[in-house]
């Protein structure tokens, strides 16, 4: 089951149209449909419950206030994610403003570091771990990425925005998104392989 699971009876564009006409119940329905995902994304970026909650509130308020600007060229959720990711990045910047490392630190080109663990996985991590355990493993793997990679990965591979939408949301070039995404995926692969590899099956690692 993916995150884009379709809820029966949930018609996003009809709800948006009603919300635009001032139907607050329709807007509430949109909120309760997406609040968990917005919170998750905000928490993954800010790494903090309180900041994530602020982001959640501010994002829906902004969405409500600017609903008339939503033209329907993209999905409402994509538009909402763009608002939320900006709010979350603002939080992060604010918190880091006294640090010397900028958020968009240049990407090192340690090509050689990209692949160390080469081992096949046990068939299906979903069968080996409970949903909670798996959630914890995946969360901590994402947390370990540097922010520049993490945000791209979250938008593309967790929230399932397209490469183009991710580039737009983060104000990055397509090629920057692609190279960060590749690094994020490979780094996560590395971490998850350490966790999920079939026992005693690391034969290629020393080659």
């Amino acid at each position: 089951m993916g995150t884009t699971t379709v809820t029966p009876g949930f018609d996003e564009s009809a709800l948006v149209a009603r919300a635009k006409d001032g139907d607050s119940e329709a807007f509430s329905e949109l909120v309760s449909h997406y609040d968990r995902r917005v919170f998750r994304m905000a928490k993954q970026i800010t790494q903090n419950d309180d900041d994530a909650e602020d982001v959640l509130q501010e994002s829906f308020l902004k969405a409500y206030t600017h609903l008339d600007n939503f033209q329907g060229n993209s999905k409402f959720y994509t538009w909402l994610v763009r608002i939320a990711v900006n709010e979350a990045l603002m939080k992060l910047r604010k918190r880091r403003s006294d640090r010397t490392v900028p958020l968009d630190e240049p990407i090192d080109t340690g090509e050689d570091e990209m692949v160390r663990e080469i081992a096949v996985w046990d068939e299906n991590p979903e069968d080996t771990y409970s949903r909670e355990e798996l959630g914890t493993i995946l969360d901590s793997a994402v947390q370990s990425l540097r922010p520049a990679y993490r945000t791209v990965f979250i938008l593309r591979d967790i929230e399932e925005l397209s490469i183009e939408e991710t580039a737009q949301a983060l104000n990055l070039s397509i090629s920057a998104v692609k190279s960060r995404l590749l690094r994020a995926r490979l780094q996560l692969r590395e971490k998850l392989t350490r966790q999920f590899k079939r026992k005693g099956d690391n034969a290629y690692a020393d080659l």
Binding site: R36, F39, L56, W121, L134, L138, R185, R189
Partner: peptide, 27 residues
Amino acid sequence: DTTKKTIKVFKGMQAQLLPSGVQMRLS
């Protein structure tokens, strides 16, 4: 193969319930 599985396992990850109180405060 393992990169493909990495992407897949994240796509299948569902958002957890909101921590207690968050939904009420949002409303």
